[in-house]
């Protein structure tokens, strides 16, 4: 493994598999009564969040604490960033606190790369702009593997706002590396016009869901509405929302995923969200295990001679 995890595009299939295998062991740790291991005691992790996030930050924080690191959160509203400090100065300050890891979320693409180049700490991308969200893709792959044993050859559909979704981008890169067959379903305004080879695009949800093993729903961001991406949530749900009837078009044992937080009644009906085929809550637990694995595996590279 490299020093940092900034993108799926920059890691190999072997690295992805090592992370997923290691995450299995951490998944076991999370099943114990004592869910904490002393592995990274003495290490300091800074969660540097320039964008509001509850889920991802909580998941990282739990992963960090369960590995016995010292955690501190540096988030925008309380930081000096609002006072006009440059990103580089913020990073240097954090470096001076003695951070071994920086977990970074930022609204601008490429910021994790920037920090990785300017810091000795291991940098983990927790979402940058519309670029990538690698740990989400890894936890999704982990969840799929747990449910379906092997990812290679699976028919996987990503549904919704692909073009603005870092979750979708990282998932596409990750699942392609692992040999899945991908389909993108959504309105043409939300599907990128440049795509890697071999990906099928469907504007018709029913057609796209036919024969899929995994349905990954993406969150619709309300601020997209009224900007011409789609006319209304009502129309969106009618055309691209997932409900029981549509779920029946997919394979019998198809699983439904969602990175959360869900908009019930907009991209996913409550019945589907809560049905046995939904693995949405497993994704949440797996997220901790995968992030523990990433922290563990990156931790070894820093002091290497």
């Amino acid at each position: 493994m490299q020093k940092d995890l900034v993108s799926i595009s920059e890691i190999s299939k072997d690295d992805i598999e090592l992370i997923l295998d290691t995450a299995s062991s951490f998944r076991d740790v999370l099943r114990r009564d004592i869910k904490k291991v002393p592995t990274l005691r003495g290490k300091t992790v800074v969660n540097l969040f320039f964008e509001p996030s509850t889920r991802t930050r909580t998941s990282f924080e739990l992963a960090e604490k369960r590995l016995s690191t010292d955690v501190f959160n540096f988030s925008v509203p309380t930081s000096s960033v609002v006072k006009g400090e440059s990103l580089l100065d913020t990073v240097r300050t954090i470096q001076s606190y003695g951070a071994d890891y920086i977990v970074i979320r930022h609204s601008a693409s490429g910021v994790p790369h920037f920090i990785a180049q300017n810091s000795a700490a291991s940098v983990i991308n927790a979402g940058d702009g519309i670029n990538e969200h690698p740990t989400q893709a890894l936890l999704d792959a982990f969840t799929i593997r747990e449910q379906k044993k092997e990812i290679k050859g699976l028919e996987i559909a990503l549904v919704g706002d692909i073009v603005h979704s870092r979750v979708a981008r990282s998932n596409i890169l990750c699942l392609l590396k692992l040999g899945a067959n991908l389909r993108l379903i959504g309105p043409p305004t939300l599907i990128p016009n440049t795509l890697p080879k071999g990906i099928k695009v469907f504007y018709d949800m029913d057609e796209g869901l036919n024969g899929v093993d995994v349905i990954m729903m993406l969150r619709i961001q309300m601020e997209r509405m009224g900007k011409g991406f789609f006319p209304s949530t009502r129309e969106y749900f009618k055309l691209w929302g997932i409900n029981q009837e549509r779920l029946a078009i997919a394979c019998k044992d198809a699983i439904v995923m969602h990175p959360g937080p869900m908009n019930r009644g907009i991209e996913i009906s409550s019945e589907v969200a809560d049905c046995p085929q939904s693995v949405i809550l497993e994704q949440v637990t797996n997220g901790i295990a995968v992030r523990m694995a990433v922290l563990y595996l990156l931790g070894g590279s820093k002091n290497a001679e």
Binding site: S24, S25, T39, Y296, G300, N303
Partner: peptide, 21 residues
């Protein structure tokens, strides 16, 4: 598996593979 309890974490080039407990 004792990987998570070792006292030399971060001192080697790569982390030991975590096996099943």
């Amino acid at each position: 598996d004792i990987s998570l309890y070792r006292d030399d974490i971060g001192m080697k080039k790569s982390q030991p593979t975590v096996r099943r407990t």
